[in-house]
Amino acid sequence: MNEEILFYLFSTLMLFGGSAVVLSRNPVNAALYMILALVSLAVLFLTLDAFFLAALQVLVYAGAVMVLFLFVIMMLDVDLRERSRPNIMAAALGLVTTGAVVAILLTWVGEGSTIRPSVGSVPTPGNPLAFVTGSKAFGYALLTKYMLPIQVAGFLLLVAMVGAILLGRRTKLKSSEGKDGS
């Protein structure tokens, strides 16, 4: 029962946070709502027994990514509020389309299984990648079966780092500044 309460509470919070991100005019507020949504999502991960991911979610998203956002907002240090209202056509089309997506997903929901298998703390021999709560099996899987993707992901982060440094660096460039504002 606890789980159910947690689920309803935090999914409501998450959806509220998400909607507030879309609707709020001030980016600082939006970022804070975003943190709300992300932390709520972490709690939802907890209700799904994905403890490691929940921790990761809080650390990476709420901790790093959103701080980055806030940092950029502070750094730009200008009035970033949107002045114009959203386009009615766009809003209508957006609502229709997103509604369609939800509708399709809802049509389907009955097909999946609804019973959760019980969770063991160690993988069984026949099924090494059965769902477990411990982070140990997570590590095992990442470093054996998913060794290659993890290496690739490492390079992905390297690329992101190099790129961010390159693009964010403030240096004098031989550029076509004169064309700005045209």
Binding site: D49, L53, Q57, I115, R116, F131, L142, P149
Partner: peptide, 25 residues
């Protein structure tokens, strides 16, 4: 969680990594 298969969680792990990289860039 509902299928008792770990691969989805691992994919999520990668998705978080990717998302962070995309935000940085």
């Amino acid at each position: 969680r509902y299928s008792g298969n770990m691969d989805g969680v691992i994919l999520t792990f990668f998705a978080i990594t990717v998302a962070a990289a995309e935000v940085a860039i």
